[in-house]
Design a protein around this nucleic acid. Sequence first.
DNA 1: TAAGATTTTAAACGTTTGTTTAAAATTTGC
DNA 2: GCAAATTTTAAACAAACGTTTAAAATCTTA
Lengths: 218, 218
Amino acid sequence: MKCINLSSEEKLKEAAKSVFLKKGFAGTTARDIADAAGMNIALTNYYFRSKEKLFVEIFRDLFSLYCTNTVKILEKPIGLKEKIIEVIEEDYRMMKEEPNLVLFIMTEIHRDCENLLPELSKYSEMLKGMFVEQIAEEVRLGRMRDIEVEHLMPIIIGSLQFVFVGKNMYMKVHGMSEEQFDDYARTHKDHVINMVVNYLFQDVDTMREIRVKEETVL
Amino acid sequence: MKCINLSSEEKLKEAAKSVFLKKGFAGTTARDIADAAGMNIALTNYYFRSKEKLFVEIFRDLFSLYCTNTVKILEKPIGLKEKIIEVIEEDYRMMKEEPNLVLFIMTEIHRDCENLLPELSKYSEMLKGMFVEQIAEEVRLGRMRDIEVEHLMPIIIGSLQFVFVGKNMYMKVHGMSEEQFDDYARTHKDHVINMVVNYLFQDVDTMREIRVKEETVL
DNA sequence: TAAGATTTTAAACGTTTGTTTAAAATTTGC
DNA sequence: GCAAATTTTAAACAAACGTTTAAAATCTTA
C-alpha cells in the first residue's frame, strides 16, 4: 500500500507557494522551486506531475486564504456596521501576514481567468446568502445608504487592498522600511474603516440627527 | 547620416506595448511581440537591442501615462475638493482607456523595483509642491479632515483603481460583459467620489452645519 | 536481512527562450 | 542609375525551459 512521505511533498509545496507568491506563475521556473526547497529538480514532477498542476493546487489554497475568513465574517449573525469593520480588520490581518497575496491573486486571474474560474465560486458565495438580505433589510429601514452589493464589497475591501497591491511602490516612493510600512498600513486601515463606515452609515445618522434637531426647534 | 524609419520602429513598439500590458514582462516572449507586430523576430533586437531595453522604454511611457495627467491636475490653481474630484474623474478616464494599466504598473514594480526605481520620481513629484501646501492650509483652516498626504493619495485613487486591478475577477464573478463592466465602473466611480469627498470634507461641513443650527437656536 | 516498494538523484530529453549572424531586399545620396 | 547605407529576412546560436529517464539510495515489510 502507498505510504507517501508528506514531509517532502509538503516541503516542496511550501517552497513553491513562497516562490509563486513572490514571482508569479510566469516568472517562476521549476529550478527556482527546487532551489527554494533545497530538493532535486525532478521532484516537482514526481509529486505533482507538472509545474502547472502544482500551481493550480497552490492557487486553490491561496484563493481560499484570500476569501474564507471574510466569508465567515459575512455569515456571522451580527450587525452590519460591526460586520464591515470586522471584515476590514480581517483583511488587514490577512495582508499583513501575506502581503503579496492580493497582487498574486489579481495577476494570476488576469493571466488565466478561464482555468482558474472554478476557484472563484467561493468569492461568489461571499455575495449571496444572508449578507445580501441583511443589506436589503438595513437599506429598507433607512439605516444604511442604498448601495448594490457589487459596489459594496469593493468599497469595503478595495481601498485597503490597493495599498498592499502597491506596497513595493509606496515603500520606494516614501522610502519606507518593512516596519514603517506596517505602521503606515495600520493607520491607513483606520482611515478606511472611518471613511467606509462614515459613507455607509454616518451620513444617514447625521442627517437623522439634523432632522431631529430641526424638529426639536420647530 | 542615420535616418531611421520610425514607422517600423514605432509599429514594433506599439505592438510590444499592447502585449506587455496584457501579459507582463515575464509572460511575454520575443516571438509574441514579433507576431503581434507582424514583423521578423530579429527586429526587436535590431531596433531596441534587447527585450528588456524595449520593456524599460515602454514602462517609462506607461508610467508616465499613469501619472502625468494626475500630477497636472494636482498642480492646478483650483480648490481642493474640486481638485480631488477631477483626479478621480481623470483616473477613471485613464483606466477606461487602458484597463490593464494599473495591474501592469503594480506587477512590474513588484517584480523589479530596483531597476524601475528611477521612473518613480514622477510619482514623488505628485506628493510635493503646492499640493502638500494646499492640504496643510485647508487642514489649518479646519475645512478638511487632518490627513497626511501619504494616506490621502491612496484614499483618493485606491478604491477606484482596485476595481480595475480586479477587473477580470469582477467580470467573471458577476458574469459581466465589457459594456456592463464599463457601466459598473462608472457607477463605482461616483460612489468613490461621494465617499471620499464625504470623508474629507462633508463631515466637517455637516458638523459645522450642526454647529450653525445650534447657534441659531440658542 | 533479504526482497520489494518508494524516494531521490544525476543526467539527459526535446522545446522554447532571447539573441546573433550573414545574406537578401530595400532605400538613400550623389 | 549605381554604390553605399539601411532595413528585413531566414536560419542558427547557446542557454534555459519543463519534463523524463533509469539507476542509486532509502525505506517498508516479511
